[in-house]
């Protein structure tokens, strides 16, 4: 699947010195191809997460269009867009994102169960094995460490083998060893044909990237 952004920008209403609008993302074009791993780096508040949320169909750009293959995301109804996100876009949000009343395995199967579909438990177990957390499948989120929860979120995002994988700081506050496990897994997913976009602070991420970008005050530039 190809994710394509045409002349997108995002402004938020906010009281500024000269204007009452704040530009989070300046007009930009972007293309994410299948099988490649792209990273976007930049300081906090530079607009990386806003960009990612726009790509995920969660935040409508002020101008421009975003296409998934040939479908313009924001021309779809909310229900259609949600279903599309469920099927084709895997997202690893920032921070701890488990549902605390469900076990790890149930959390991972959520993309299926949310739509009343029977989850492929074998796939889930394979993912857990690959991320080295299969022994925790029946644990509750409150019993897990930050690294384990993050790996759970990655497994959950990959559960439906999405065409696009968007990761927002997937390795923040993880130790070096876990960071390595995570990046090599993401790289492997790209190898298998997924288009992977990672927003990160981690300089090591460049070693895994096919292309890398830098975001500076809402401007996206190729590194």
């Amino acid at each position: 699947m190809i994710l394509k952004a045409e002349k997108i920008s995002k402004e938020f209403p906010r009281q500024m010195k000269n204007a009452n609008r704040f530009t989070a993302v300046q007009e930009t074009d972007f293309r994410l191809n299948p099988g490649e791993l792209v990273i976007i780096m930049g300081r906090s508040g530079s607009g990386k997460s806003t960009l990612l949320n726009m790509f995920a169909g969660l935040l409508q750009p002020t101008a421009g269009k975003i296409f998934l293959d040939d479908k313009s995301l924001y021309d779809l109804e909310d229900q259609e867009l949600s279903k599309l996100r469920n099927q084709h876009i895997g997202m690893i949000p920032q921070g701890q994102t488990a549902l605390y009343s469900l076990t790890m395995l149930e959390n991972i199967c959520l993309p299926y169960t949310l739509y009343g579909e029977e989850p492929h438990e074998a796939d889930a177990c394979a993912l857990l094995d690959r991320l080295e957390i299969s022994h925790l499948r029946n644990a509750m989120p409150s019993e897990l460490s930050g690294g384990e929860l993050r790996r759970m979120a990655i497994a959950r995002a990959m559960m439906k083998k999405p065409g696009i994988l968007l990761a927002d700081e997937p390795t923040s506050d993880l130790d070096d060893e876990t960071t390595k496990i995570v990046f090599s897994f993401l790289k492997e997913s790209a190898h298998n044909g997924t288009a992977v976009l990672i927003v990160t602070h981690e300089n090591d991420a460049k070693n895994y990237a096919d292309r890398s970008f830098r975001m500076n005050a809402g401007m996206l530039c190729q590194d």
Binding site: S82, L84, N86, M91, P93, T97, Y100, L110, L114, Y115
Partner: peptide, 16 residues
């Protein structure tokens, strides 16, 4: 709120 936001990320519509 955060759990609901996660469900949204996973593809839950507003209606859901």
């Amino acid at each position: 709120k955060k759990e609901f936001a996660v469900l949204r990320v996973l593809g839950a519509s507003r209606k859901k």
